[in-house]
Simulated scan of single mutants.
Amino acid sequence: MDSVEDVYQECLEIEFDLQGIPFVAQPPLGLSYKGKPLRQSYKPDFICYDEIIIEIKAAKNLDDTHRAQLHNYLRATNKRLGILINFGHHPKIQIERIIH
C-alpha cells in the first residue's frame, strides 16, 4: 500500500511540471566507503535544478532524524542546499531549509 508521502510525491511531480521546475524524482545516489563503492544507495525524493535536494515528510512535526537524513543526502551529493517539506503538520505545512 502506498504511503501518504507517496501521494505528496506524485502531486509535487505534477506541480513541478506545471511550474516548469526541472527535477529528477528519487534519483539513486551512489555511495562509497573508504573509496570503495557500496551496493546501497540513497534516494532523495527530488533533486530540483540539479542543485536542491527536496525531502518530503508526512509527520506531526519535523525532528532531528529528518534533518540528519537530509544532511546525509547533501554530503553524499556534495550539494549545498536541501529543503524539508512536512505535509503532516497541522494547520500548515512545515518547510525548513538545510544548508551544508
Rank of each mutant, 00 (worst) to 15 (best):
L18V: 07
A59F: 01
I95F: 01
Q26W: 01
S41C: 09
H89A: 15
E51P: 00
P27E: 04
K92C: 02
I47N: 02
A59P: 00
F16G: 05
G35N: 11
C48G: 01
E55L: 01
H89D: 07
S3I: 06
T65Y: 14
E96P: 08
E96L: 07
S32T: 11
I52C: 04
T65M: 11
Q26D: 06
D17W: 07
D17P: 00
P91I: 10
G88Y: 06
H100A: 12
L38S: 07
Y42R: 06
T65D: 10
K43V: 10
R39D: 09
N72L: 13
N78R: 15
Q40F: 11
I98S: 09
H100S: 13
L31Y: 10
V24H: 03
L70F: 08
A25F: 11
K57T: 09
G82E: 05
Q26M: 05
K92M: 04
I53R: 06
D63S: 12
Q9T: 13
D45T: 02
P91K: 13
Q69A: 10
H66M: 12
H71W: 08
L38H: 03
I98K: 08
D63I: 10
C48P: 02
C11P: 00
D50Q: 15
I53A: 03
Q9R: 15
I99A: 06
A25C: 13
V7D: 00
I21D: 00
N61H: 13
I52N: 04
T65A: 10
I21M: 02
E5F: 04
I14G: 00
I95L: 13
L74N: 08
I85T: 04
H100L: 12
I54G: 03
H90R: 13
E13K: 15
R97F: 01
H90D: 10
E51A: 14
P27I: 05
K60W: 01
F16E: 02
N72R: 15
Q26C: 07
P44I: 02
L12W: 06
E51R: 15
D6F: 06
S41T: 15
I21W: 01
